[in-house]
């Protein structure tokens, strides 16, 4: 695949948030304001690029059986670096993101890309993939945050908007609004791409980082685990 193709597929066609539906927790939690969405997006992109590079470089050294724990250690290391840097230089953003910054470790996008891409591609390609996916995540967060902040608090990145600031819909900045905006955004993206994107009809184990770790769940989807559960009874 062309270099630009690797970079661009993360933005819309394989957007990690709106198409692959990964990393839902940070998307919903930090898209309440544009500033926190931007901080989260940049932090996750930095971790994603670094971890993709490291895992791609180490792909021939890591034994297959213990690869998931190895990835987790690599990712947790980079997350700690980002945490320490942010605490030192951007303390107000560090406070704002709180526990969600540490939770980048368990962000499905990062483990998912390590498992699906970085461990089978060259360092340069893995870095571009990380950048593309990270930017896709950032873009999705910014879209969500813009809608929620403009209509929910009548401002954009803290700057008040003349008419809207007197006619806010506060529920958009709360959790029900998060689910609602997210659902509508996925519907819009699926209408735009008209099923050209690898549409995901239901939540499956494909992107789930634990999928490889749980051999029992066969290659199929999480629904499979349900069926297995049923057949166990």
């Amino acid at each position: 695949m062309k270099k630009s193709g690797i970079l661009l597929k993360g933005l819309l066609k394989e957007n990690p948030v709106f198409v692959l539906v990964l990393g839902t927790c940070p998307t919903l939690a930090t898209s309440t304001s544009v500033i926190s969405a931007l901080a989260m997006g940049i932090a996750a992109t930095a971790v994603l690029i670094c971890s993709n590079i490291a895992i791609s470089a180490l792909r021939n050294l890591i034994p297959d059986k213990v690869r998931i724990p190895c990835y987790i250690v690599v990712i947790a290391g980079f997350v700690t670096i980002v945490q320490l840097l942010m605490e030192a230089y951007l303390p107000s953003l560090y406070e704002m993101l709180g526990v969600y910054l540490a939770l980048i470790v368990v962000n499905c996008i990062i483990l998912g890309r390590a498992e699906a891409y970085a461990n089978s591609h060259k360092v340069g390609e893995a870095a571009l993939d990380g950048l593309g996916m990270g930017l896709g995540f950032l873009l999705a967060l910014l879209c969500m945050a813009t809608i929620r902040e403009v209509f929910g608090s009548g401002s954009w990145a803290g700057f008040p908007i003349p008419f809207l600031k007197d006619h806010t819909v506060p529920i958009l900045t709360q959790s029900p609004g998060g689910f609602l905006v997210f659902g509508v955004m996925i519907a819009i993206v699926s209408a735009i791409t008209k099923g050209k994107a690898p549409a995901k009809k239901s939540f499956s184990c494909e992107g789930c980082p634990s999928a490889a770790a749980c051999g029992k769940l066969s290659p199929a989807s999480c629904e499979m685990s349900g069926k297995e559960a049923a057949s166990h009874d």
């Binding site: 539906v21 529920i171 709360q174 959790s175 029900p176 609004g177 998060g178 689910f179 609602l180 997210f182 659902g183 509508v184 996925i186 519907a187 819009i188 699926s190 209408a191 995901k200 009809k201 239901s202 939540f203």
Partner: peptide, 23 residues
């Protein structure tokens, strides 16, 4: 539901209503 909303979007919107109940 309408086609673009089938699957994940309608699930998220129903989650939104359940979340509203928790308020």
């Amino acid at each position: 539901p309408p086609k673009p909303f089938s699957g994940i979007p309608i699930t998220l919107i129903s989650a939104s209503i359940v979340a509203l109940a928790f308020y």
